[in-house]
Design a protein around this nucleic acid. Structure first.
Length: 434
DNA sequence: AAGGTAGACAACCGCCAATGT
DNA sequence: CACATTGGCGGTTGTCTACCT
Protein backbone atom coordinates (compact mmCIF):
# COMPACT_ATOMS: atom_id res chain seq x y z
CA UNK A 1 0.00 0.00 0.00
CA UNK A 2 2.75 2.27 0.55
CA UNK A 3 4.24 4.04 -2.21
CA UNK A 4 5.34 7.19 -3.70
CA UNK A 5 4.40 9.72 -1.16
CA UNK A 6 7.85 10.94 -1.69
CA UNK A 7 8.53 9.45 -4.97
CA UNK A 8 10.57 12.18 -6.32
CA UNK A 9 10.67 12.36 -9.96
CA UNK A 10 13.96 13.23 -11.33
CA UNK A 11 13.88 16.93 -10.95
CA UNK A 12 12.24 16.70 -7.62
CA UNK A 13 8.66 16.97 -8.64
CA UNK A 14 6.34 14.68 -6.86
CA UNK A 15 4.55 12.55 -9.27
CA UNK A 16 1.03 13.36 -10.18
CA UNK A 17 -1.40 14.31 -7.57
CA UNK A 18 -3.94 12.01 -8.98
CA UNK A 19 -4.76 9.16 -6.71
CA UNK A 20 -4.59 6.91 -9.62
CA UNK A 21 -2.35 6.53 -12.57
CA UNK A 22 -3.90 8.11 -15.50
CA UNK A 23 -2.52 5.74 -17.94
CA UNK A 24 -4.64 2.75 -18.57
CA UNK A 25 -2.36 0.94 -20.83
CA UNK A 26 0.33 -0.27 -18.66
CA UNK A 27 1.75 2.86 -17.31
CA UNK A 28 3.23 6.02 -18.43
CA UNK A 29 6.31 7.83 -17.71
CA UNK A 30 6.31 10.53 -15.18
CA UNK A 31 7.66 13.93 -15.75
CA UNK A 32 11.18 12.68 -15.75
CA UNK A 33 10.90 9.07 -16.60
CA UNK A 34 9.62 7.35 -13.52
CA UNK A 35 6.97 4.99 -14.52
CA UNK A 36 3.72 4.61 -12.70
CA UNK A 37 0.83 2.28 -12.93
CA UNK A 38 0.65 -1.47 -13.11
CA UNK A 39 3.80 -3.44 -13.06
CA UNK A 40 4.70 -5.58 -15.96
CA UNK A 41 6.12 -9.03 -15.74
CA UNK A 42 9.38 -7.72 -17.01
CA UNK A 43 9.58 -5.16 -14.29
CA UNK A 44 8.73 -7.78 -11.75
CA UNK A 45 11.50 -9.93 -13.02
CA UNK A 46 13.98 -7.13 -12.87
CA UNK A 47 12.98 -6.32 -9.37
CA UNK A 48 13.10 -9.92 -8.24
CA UNK A 49 16.48 -10.37 -9.77
CA UNK A 50 17.73 -7.27 -8.13
CA UNK A 51 16.47 -8.21 -4.72
CA UNK A 52 17.78 -11.68 -5.12
CA UNK A 53 21.18 -10.28 -5.71
CA UNK A 54 21.24 -7.36 -3.36
CA UNK A 55 18.66 -8.16 -0.80
CA UNK A 56 15.83 -6.04 0.41
CA UNK A 57 16.18 -2.45 1.33
CA UNK A 58 17.85 0.45 -0.25
CA UNK A 59 14.99 0.63 -2.61
CA UNK A 60 16.03 3.79 -4.25
CA UNK A 61 19.13 2.11 -5.43
CA UNK A 62 16.98 -0.33 -7.30
CA UNK A 63 15.97 2.36 -9.64
CA UNK A 64 19.47 3.63 -9.91
CA UNK A 65 21.12 0.31 -10.49
CA UNK A 66 18.64 -1.98 -12.04
CA UNK A 67 17.32 0.11 -14.80
CA UNK A 68 13.86 -0.05 -13.40
CA UNK A 69 12.00 3.11 -14.03
CA UNK A 70 10.26 2.98 -10.74
CA UNK A 71 10.85 4.96 -7.66
CA UNK A 72 12.16 3.16 -4.64
CA UNK A 73 8.94 3.23 -2.78
CA UNK A 74 7.14 1.75 -5.68
CA UNK A 75 9.67 -1.04 -5.76
CA UNK A 76 9.37 -1.66 -2.09
CA UNK A 77 5.62 -1.78 -2.38
CA UNK A 78 5.73 -4.15 -5.24
CA UNK A 79 8.13 -6.38 -3.46
CA UNK A 80 6.31 -6.33 -0.19
CA UNK A 81 2.90 -6.91 -1.58
CA UNK A 82 3.54 -9.16 -4.49
CA UNK A 83 6.99 -10.48 -4.95
CA UNK A 84 8.49 -11.24 -1.62
CA UNK A 85 8.86 -14.81 -0.50
CA UNK A 86 6.20 -16.67 1.38
CA UNK A 87 3.40 -14.53 0.22
CA UNK A 88 0.17 -16.33 0.41
CA UNK A 89 -2.18 -15.65 -2.39
CA UNK A 90 -5.78 -16.37 -2.82
CA UNK A 91 -8.82 -15.62 -0.80
CA UNK A 92 -8.67 -15.45 2.91
CA UNK A 93 -9.56 -18.64 4.59
CA UNK A 94 -12.35 -18.63 7.13
CA UNK A 95 -9.74 -18.90 9.82
CA UNK A 96 -7.96 -15.89 8.50
CA UNK A 97 -11.15 -13.96 8.18
CA UNK A 98 -11.98 -14.74 11.69
CA UNK A 99 -8.57 -13.69 12.81
CA UNK A 100 -8.83 -10.46 10.93
CA UNK A 101 -12.02 -9.66 12.70
CA UNK A 102 -10.50 -10.39 16.02
CA UNK A 103 -7.41 -8.44 15.26
CA UNK A 104 -9.38 -5.51 14.02
CA UNK A 105 -11.48 -5.59 17.09
CA UNK A 106 -8.30 -5.53 19.00
CA UNK A 107 -6.15 -3.13 17.09
CA UNK A 108 -8.39 -1.11 14.87
CA UNK A 109 -7.08 -0.14 11.50
CA UNK A 110 -3.59 -1.26 12.21
CA UNK A 111 -3.18 -3.16 9.04
CA UNK A 112 0.49 -3.75 9.33
CA UNK A 113 0.14 -5.08 12.80
CA UNK A 114 -2.65 -7.31 11.71
CA UNK A 115 -0.61 -8.49 8.79
CA UNK A 116 2.16 -9.42 11.14
CA UNK A 117 -0.10 -11.98 12.64
CA UNK A 118 -1.37 -13.32 9.38
CA UNK A 119 1.56 -15.10 7.85
CA UNK A 120 1.93 -14.50 4.20
CA UNK A 121 -0.65 -11.80 4.10
CA UNK A 122 -0.01 -8.18 3.46
CA UNK A 123 -1.45 -5.20 5.13
CA UNK A 124 -2.84 -4.11 1.84
CA UNK A 125 -4.73 -7.34 1.42
CA UNK A 126 -6.14 -7.10 4.86
CA UNK A 127 -7.07 -3.53 4.41
CA UNK A 128 -8.80 -4.27 1.17
CA UNK A 129 -10.63 -7.13 2.70
CA UNK A 130 -11.73 -5.05 5.59
CA UNK A 131 -12.84 -2.11 3.53
CA UNK A 132 -14.84 -4.37 1.33
CA UNK A 133 -16.37 -5.94 4.34
CA UNK A 134 -17.19 -2.58 5.81
CA UNK A 135 -18.92 -1.55 2.67
CA UNK A 136 -20.85 -4.73 2.44
CA UNK A 137 -21.90 -4.83 6.02
CA UNK A 138 -22.91 -1.25 5.88
CA UNK A 139 -25.02 -1.83 2.90
CA UNK A 140 -26.58 -4.86 4.44
CA UNK A 141 -27.19 -3.07 7.66
CA UNK A 142 -25.21 -5.60 9.54
CA UNK A 143 -22.83 -4.91 12.35
CA UNK A 144 -19.19 -5.04 11.63
CA UNK A 145 -18.31 -7.56 14.22
CA UNK A 146 -20.00 -10.81 14.87
CA UNK A 147 -21.43 -10.90 18.29
CA UNK A 148 -18.84 -13.21 19.60
CA UNK A 149 -15.92 -11.15 18.56
CA UNK A 150 -14.27 -9.49 21.41
CA UNK A 151 -13.35 -5.92 21.11
CA UNK A 152 -10.27 -6.84 22.92
CA UNK A 153 -8.94 -10.18 23.78
CA UNK A 154 -6.71 -8.81 26.37
CA UNK A 155 -7.89 -10.09 29.64
CA UNK A 156 -6.25 -8.01 32.22
CA UNK A 157 -5.41 -10.79 34.43
CA UNK A 158 -6.47 -9.50 37.73
CA UNK A 159 -8.83 -6.63 37.58
CA UNK A 160 -10.98 -7.28 34.66
CA UNK A 161 -14.60 -7.75 35.33
CA UNK A 162 -17.37 -7.99 32.86
CA UNK A 163 -19.40 -4.91 32.66
CA UNK A 164 -22.89 -5.03 31.37
CA UNK A 165 -24.43 -2.18 29.56
CA UNK A 166 -28.15 -2.26 29.39
CA UNK A 167 -29.53 -0.57 26.38
CA UNK A 168 -33.01 0.78 26.76
CA UNK A 169 -35.44 -1.14 24.76
CA UNK A 170 -36.91 1.96 23.30
CA UNK A 171 -33.64 2.96 21.87
CA UNK A 172 -33.02 -0.24 20.19
CA UNK A 173 -36.50 -0.35 18.86
CA UNK A 174 -35.98 2.94 17.21
CA UNK A 175 -32.85 1.81 15.66
CA UNK A 176 -32.55 2.27 12.05
CA UNK A 177 -32.58 -0.45 9.58
CA UNK A 178 -28.88 -0.55 9.80
CA UNK A 179 -29.05 -1.54 13.36
CA UNK A 180 -27.82 1.82 14.34
CA UNK A 181 -29.21 3.88 17.11
CA UNK A 182 -30.74 7.15 16.19
CA UNK A 183 -28.35 9.96 16.48
CA UNK A 184 -28.58 13.37 17.91
CA UNK A 185 -29.89 12.23 21.20
CA UNK A 186 -28.65 10.83 24.40
CA UNK A 187 -29.29 7.44 25.61
CA UNK A 188 -28.90 6.08 29.01
CA UNK A 189 -27.50 2.82 30.00
CA UNK A 190 -26.54 0.96 33.04
CA UNK A 191 -23.09 -0.13 33.78
CA UNK A 192 -22.87 -3.05 36.04
CA UNK A 193 -20.10 -5.00 37.40
CA UNK A 194 -19.74 -7.08 40.38
CA UNK A 195 -19.28 -4.15 42.66
CA UNK A 196 -21.48 -1.45 41.36
CA UNK A 197 -24.30 -0.49 39.13
CA UNK A 198 -24.51 2.93 37.66
CA UNK A 199 -26.68 4.67 35.20
CA UNK A 200 -25.09 6.94 32.67
CA UNK A 201 -26.00 8.94 29.70
CA UNK A 202 -24.16 9.09 26.47
CA UNK A 203 -24.67 11.49 23.67
CA UNK A 204 -24.93 9.70 20.45
CA UNK A 205 -22.71 10.96 17.78
CA UNK A 206 -23.75 10.75 14.25
CA UNK A 207 -21.03 8.82 12.68
CA UNK A 208 -20.15 9.92 9.27
CA UNK A 209 -19.25 6.45 8.46
CA UNK A 210 -20.48 4.32 11.23
CA UNK A 211 -18.84 1.20 10.06
CA UNK A 212 -15.54 2.63 9.31
CA UNK A 213 -13.81 2.40 12.54
CA UNK A 214 -10.45 3.67 11.43
CA UNK A 215 -9.56 4.60 14.93
CA UNK A 216 -6.15 5.60 13.98
CA UNK A 217 -7.36 8.11 11.59
CA UNK A 218 -7.98 11.49 13.07
CA UNK A 219 -10.94 11.90 10.83
CA UNK A 220 -12.72 8.75 11.57
CA UNK A 221 -11.66 8.40 15.11
CA UNK A 222 -13.85 11.29 15.93
CA UNK A 223 -16.78 10.06 14.07
CA UNK A 224 -16.78 6.65 15.43
CA UNK A 225 -19.16 6.12 18.20
CA UNK A 226 -21.18 3.19 19.24
CA UNK A 227 -22.13 1.56 16.04
CA UNK A 228 -19.87 -1.35 16.41
CA UNK A 229 -21.69 -2.60 19.36
CA UNK A 230 -25.18 -2.48 18.04
CA UNK A 231 -25.14 -5.95 17.12
CA UNK A 232 -28.61 -6.91 18.02
CA UNK A 233 -30.94 -4.02 17.71
CA UNK A 234 -33.73 -5.92 19.26
CA UNK A 235 -31.86 -7.16 22.21
CA UNK A 236 -32.02 -5.21 25.31
CA UNK A 237 -28.62 -5.70 26.69
CA UNK A 238 -25.21 -6.88 25.92
CA UNK A 239 -22.07 -7.36 27.79
CA UNK A 240 -19.43 -4.93 26.93
CA UNK A 241 -15.93 -5.32 28.08
CA UNK A 242 -14.11 -2.22 27.14
CA UNK A 243 -10.75 -3.10 25.89
CA UNK A 244 -7.80 -2.60 27.97
CA UNK A 245 -5.75 -0.21 25.99
CA UNK A 246 -3.57 -2.30 23.94
CA UNK A 247 -0.04 -2.79 24.76
CA UNK A 248 2.42 -0.08 24.90
CA UNK A 249 3.19 -0.41 21.29
CA UNK A 250 4.25 2.77 19.68
CA UNK A 251 1.68 4.49 17.61
CA UNK A 252 3.80 3.67 14.71
CA UNK A 253 5.86 0.69 15.31
CA UNK A 254 7.84 0.75 12.21
CA UNK A 255 11.48 0.49 12.87
CA UNK A 256 10.54 -1.87 15.59
CA UNK A 257 10.43 -5.04 13.66
CA UNK A 258 9.91 -7.12 16.68
CA UNK A 259 6.91 -5.26 17.74
CA UNK A 260 5.32 -6.19 14.54
CA UNK A 261 5.18 -9.79 15.16
CA UNK A 262 4.29 -9.44 18.70
CA UNK A 263 3.79 -6.45 20.79
CA UNK A 264 5.91 -5.95 23.79
CA UNK A 265 4.20 -6.79 26.99
CA UNK A 266 3.15 -3.91 29.05
CA UNK A 267 2.07 -3.97 32.57
CA UNK A 268 -1.58 -3.34 33.17
CA UNK A 269 -0.81 -0.27 35.12
CA UNK A 270 1.24 1.13 32.39
CA UNK A 271 -1.45 0.35 29.95
CA UNK A 272 -3.92 2.22 31.95
CA UNK A 273 -1.80 5.17 32.65
CA UNK A 274 -0.60 5.78 29.19
CA UNK A 275 -2.25 3.93 26.47
CA UNK A 276 -5.68 4.73 27.57
CA UNK A 277 -5.12 8.32 26.74
CA UNK A 278 -3.86 7.60 23.33
CA UNK A 279 -5.82 4.57 22.57
CA UNK A 280 -6.35 5.81 19.14
CA UNK A 281 -5.92 2.39 17.86
CA UNK A 282 -8.87 1.13 19.70
CA UNK A 283 -12.02 0.91 17.75
CA UNK A 284 -14.11 2.19 20.55
CA UNK A 285 -12.03 5.13 21.43
CA UNK A 286 -14.84 7.56 21.17
CA UNK A 287 -16.83 5.42 23.42
CA UNK A 288 -14.12 5.71 25.95
CA UNK A 289 -14.18 9.39 25.42
CA UNK A 290 -17.84 9.47 26.12
CA UNK A 291 -17.32 7.60 29.27
CA UNK A 292 -14.68 10.00 30.34
CA UNK A 293 -16.77 12.96 29.41
CA UNK A 294 -19.54 11.72 31.56
CA UNK A 295 -17.32 11.65 34.59
CA UNK A 296 -17.82 8.04 34.76
CA UNK A 297 -15.08 6.21 36.42
CA UNK A 298 -13.67 3.89 33.93
CA UNK A 299 -14.70 0.44 34.73
CA UNK A 300 -11.97 -1.97 34.42
CA UNK A 301 -12.99 -3.60 31.28
CA UNK A 302 -10.63 -5.47 29.20
CA UNK A 303 -12.73 -6.80 26.51
CA UNK A 304 -16.22 -6.71 25.43
CA UNK A 305 -18.57 -9.25 24.28
CA UNK A 306 -22.03 -9.21 23.02
CA UNK A 307 -24.07 -11.12 25.39
CA UNK A 308 -27.08 -12.50 23.71
CA UNK A 309 -25.52 -15.20 21.73
CA UNK A 310 -27.36 -15.36 18.57
CA UNK A 311 -26.38 -16.33 15.17
CA UNK A 312 -26.60 -13.96 12.38
CA UNK A 313 -29.38 -14.35 10.01
CA UNK A 314 -28.63 -17.50 8.32
CA UNK A 315 -25.71 -16.40 6.30
CA UNK A 316 -23.50 -18.88 7.90
CA UNK A 317 -21.76 -21.18 5.63
CA UNK A 318 -20.60 -24.18 7.52
CA UNK A 319 -17.32 -23.66 9.15
CA UNK A 320 -14.60 -26.02 8.43
CA UNK A 321 -14.13 -28.81 10.84
CA UNK A 322 -13.35 -27.78 14.33
CA UNK A 323 -15.05 -24.47 14.37
CA UNK A 324 -18.12 -24.56 16.43
CA UNK A 325 -18.56 -20.95 17.08
CA UNK A 326 -21.42 -19.18 15.41
CA UNK A 327 -19.89 -16.78 13.08
CA UNK A 328 -20.86 -14.83 10.11
CA UNK A 329 -19.00 -15.76 7.05
CA UNK A 330 -21.72 -14.53 4.89
CA UNK A 331 -19.31 -12.24 3.25
CA UNK A 332 -17.10 -14.92 2.00
CA UNK A 333 -18.52 -14.59 -1.36
CA UNK A 334 -15.63 -16.01 -3.17
CA UNK A 335 -14.69 -19.53 -3.04
CA UNK A 336 -11.38 -20.36 -1.68
CA UNK A 337 -8.66 -20.17 -4.21
CA UNK A 338 -11.03 -19.18 -6.86
CA UNK A 339 -9.14 -18.76 -9.99
CA UNK A 340 -9.62 -15.82 -12.13
CA UNK A 341 -8.47 -15.73 -15.62
CA UNK A 342 -7.50 -12.40 -16.78
CA UNK A 343 -5.00 -10.74 -18.85
CA UNK A 344 -2.02 -8.75 -18.14
CA UNK A 345 -1.36 -6.64 -15.17
CA UNK A 346 1.53 -8.83 -14.34
CA UNK A 347 0.31 -9.11 -10.85
CA UNK A 348 -2.97 -10.51 -11.91
CA UNK A 349 -1.36 -12.89 -14.24
CA UNK A 350 0.97 -14.15 -11.64
CA UNK A 351 -1.79 -14.37 -9.17
CA UNK A 352 -3.94 -16.38 -11.43
CA UNK A 353 -1.13 -18.63 -12.28
CA UNK A 354 -0.18 -18.89 -8.74
CA UNK A 355 -3.64 -19.82 -7.72
CA UNK A 356 -3.78 -22.45 -10.33
CA UNK A 357 -0.47 -23.74 -9.22
CA UNK A 358 -1.70 -23.69 -5.74
CA UNK A 359 -4.53 -25.91 -6.62
CA UNK A 360 -2.56 -28.29 -8.65
CA UNK A 361 0.48 -28.49 -6.52
CA UNK A 362 -0.95 -29.14 -3.17
CA UNK A 363 1.73 -31.51 -2.27
CA UNK A 364 4.63 -29.51 -3.33
CA UNK A 365 7.57 -28.51 -1.36
CA UNK A 366 7.46 -28.22 2.29
CA UNK A 367 9.12 -25.01 3.09
CA UNK A 368 10.13 -23.91 6.47
CA UNK A 369 11.89 -20.68 6.89
CA UNK A 370 14.00 -21.78 9.73
CA UNK A 371 15.28 -18.39 10.55
CA UNK A 372 11.85 -17.17 11.31
CA UNK A 373 10.38 -20.17 12.83
CA UNK A 374 11.36 -19.55 16.37
CA UNK A 375 10.15 -16.06 16.17
CA UNK A 376 6.97 -17.11 14.60
CA UNK A 377 6.30 -19.79 17.08
CA UNK A 378 6.46 -17.14 19.72
CA UNK A 379 3.71 -15.39 17.92
CA UNK A 380 1.80 -18.59 17.82
CA UNK A 381 2.21 -19.08 21.47
CA UNK A 382 0.98 -15.64 22.16
CA UNK A 383 -2.01 -16.14 19.97
CA UNK A 384 -2.62 -19.45 21.52
CA UNK A 385 -2.60 -17.93 24.93
CA UNK A 386 -5.07 -15.36 23.83
CA UNK A 387 -7.26 -17.94 22.31
CA UNK A 388 -7.16 -19.98 25.43
CA UNK A 389 -7.91 -17.02 27.56
CA UNK A 390 -10.82 -16.30 25.35
CA UNK A 391 -12.04 -19.78 25.43
CA UNK A 392 -12.03 -19.76 29.15
CA UNK A 393 -14.03 -16.62 29.41
CA UNK A 394 -16.29 -16.31 26.52
CA UNK A 395 -18.83 -18.46 24.91
CA UNK A 396 -17.31 -21.73 24.01
CA UNK A 397 -15.08 -21.33 21.11
CA UNK A 398 -12.56 -23.46 19.55
CA UNK A 399 -9.23 -21.88 19.31
CA UNK A 400 -8.71 -22.87 15.78
CA UNK A 401 -8.85 -19.36 14.60
CA UNK A 402 -6.52 -17.70 16.90
CA UNK A 403 -3.74 -20.06 16.49
CA UNK A 404 -2.47 -18.14 13.62
CA UNK A 405 -0.03 -20.84 13.04
CA UNK A 406 -0.93 -24.46 13.11
CA UNK A 407 -4.12 -23.74 11.33
CA UNK A 408 -2.10 -22.41 8.50
CA UNK A 409 -0.06 -25.47 8.20
CA UNK A 410 -1.56 -26.65 5.06
CA UNK A 411 -1.76 -23.31 3.43
CA UNK A 412 0.38 -22.44 0.58
CA UNK A 413 2.76 -19.70 0.04
CA UNK A 414 4.46 -18.15 -2.85
CA UNK A 415 8.13 -18.42 -2.55
CA UNK A 416 8.73 -15.12 -4.18
CA UNK A 417 9.96 -16.44 -7.39
CA UNK A 418 6.77 -17.61 -8.82
CA UNK A 419 6.63 -21.00 -7.25
CA UNK A 420 3.92 -22.13 -5.01
CA UNK A 421 5.02 -23.85 -1.94
CA UNK A 422 3.42 -25.47 0.96
CA UNK A 423 4.43 -24.03 4.22
CA UNK A 424 4.38 -25.82 7.49
CA UNK A 425 5.70 -23.20 9.71
CA UNK A 426 4.78 -20.20 7.79
CA UNK A 427 7.14 -17.45 8.30
CA UNK A 428 6.27 -14.10 9.47
CA UNK A 429 8.34 -11.67 7.68
CA UNK A 430 5.50 -9.71 6.36
CA UNK A 431 6.70 -6.41 5.17
CA UNK A 432 9.81 -7.32 6.92
CA UNK A 433 11.70 -4.27 7.63
CA UNK A 434 15.23 -4.80 6.85
C1' DA B 1 -26.83 -9.75 -24.63
C1' DA B 2 -26.39 -5.46 -22.29
C1' DG B 3 -26.12 -2.70 -18.38
C1' DG B 4 -25.55 -2.15 -13.50
C1' DT B 5 -23.42 -3.33 -9.24
C1' DA B 6 -20.39 -5.27 -5.88
C1' DG B 7 -16.13 -7.29 -4.72
C1' DA B 8 -11.29 -7.86 -5.25
C1' DC B 9 -7.23 -5.97 -6.19
C1' DA B 10 -3.39 -2.85 -7.19
C1' DA B 11 -1.23 1.22 -6.73
C1' DC B 12 -1.04 6.04 -5.55
C1' DC B 13 -1.13 9.82 -1.94
C1' DG B 14 0.21 12.32 2.12
C1' DC B 15 2.17 11.97 6.32
C1' DC B 16 5.61 10.93 9.49
C1' DA B 17 9.41 8.64 12.06
C1' DA B 18 13.94 6.81 11.88
C1' DT B 19 18.26 7.27 10.07
C1' DG B 20 22.06 9.31 7.69
C1' DT B 21 24.96 13.29 6.58
C1' DC C 1 21.31 20.46 15.41
C1' DA C 2 19.36 20.92 10.91
C1' DC C 3 18.36 19.01 6.83
C1' DA C 4 17.82 15.22 3.53
C1' DT C 5 16.78 10.62 2.61
C1' DT C 6 14.53 6.40 3.25
C1' DG C 7 10.95 3.63 4.18
C1' DG C 8 6.68 2.44 6.67
C1' DC C 9 1.79 3.43 7.53
C1' DG C 10 -3.17 4.34 6.80
C1' DG C 11 -6.34 6.23 3.51
C1' DT C 12 -8.08 6.50 -1.00
C1' DT C 13 -9.27 5.56 -5.66
C1' DG C 14 -9.21 3.44 -10.31
C1' DT C 15 -9.60 -0.85 -12.84
C1' DC C 16 -11.04 -5.33 -13.68
C1' DT C 17 -14.05 -9.20 -13.12
C1' DA C 18 -18.01 -11.79 -11.81
C1' DC C 19 -22.55 -11.81 -10.95
C1' DC C 20 -27.21 -10.29 -11.19
C1' DT C 21 -31.20 -8.26 -13.39
Amino acid sequence: MTHSGNCINGGGAVLSGEGRPLETNGGMEGNKGLKKGPWTATEDQILMDYVRQHGEGNWNSVQRNSGLNRCGKSCRLRWANHLRPNLKKGSFTPEEERLILELHAKYGNKWARMASQLPGRTDNEIKNYWNTRVKRRQRQGLPLYPHDIKQSQQQSHSQSQPTTLTIPKGLTQSSTSTGMPPTGQNFSFQVQNSSSSQTHQLPLIAPTDPYHSAPSSPKSALSHSLPLIFDHPTDSSFTFHCPTPILGAPLRYKRHPDSRAISPPVSPSLQRSTSILRASSMPDISYNQHIAAGNMSMPDMSSFQFQPTRNFNGSLPPLPRSTSVPFDFGDSTRSLYSVKSSELPSSRVSQTQSQSDQITNDNKLNVVAAANETHYSNVLEELLREAEALASVATPRKASIGLGGRSFEDKHVLDGYGRWLQATGSTNNSLSGK
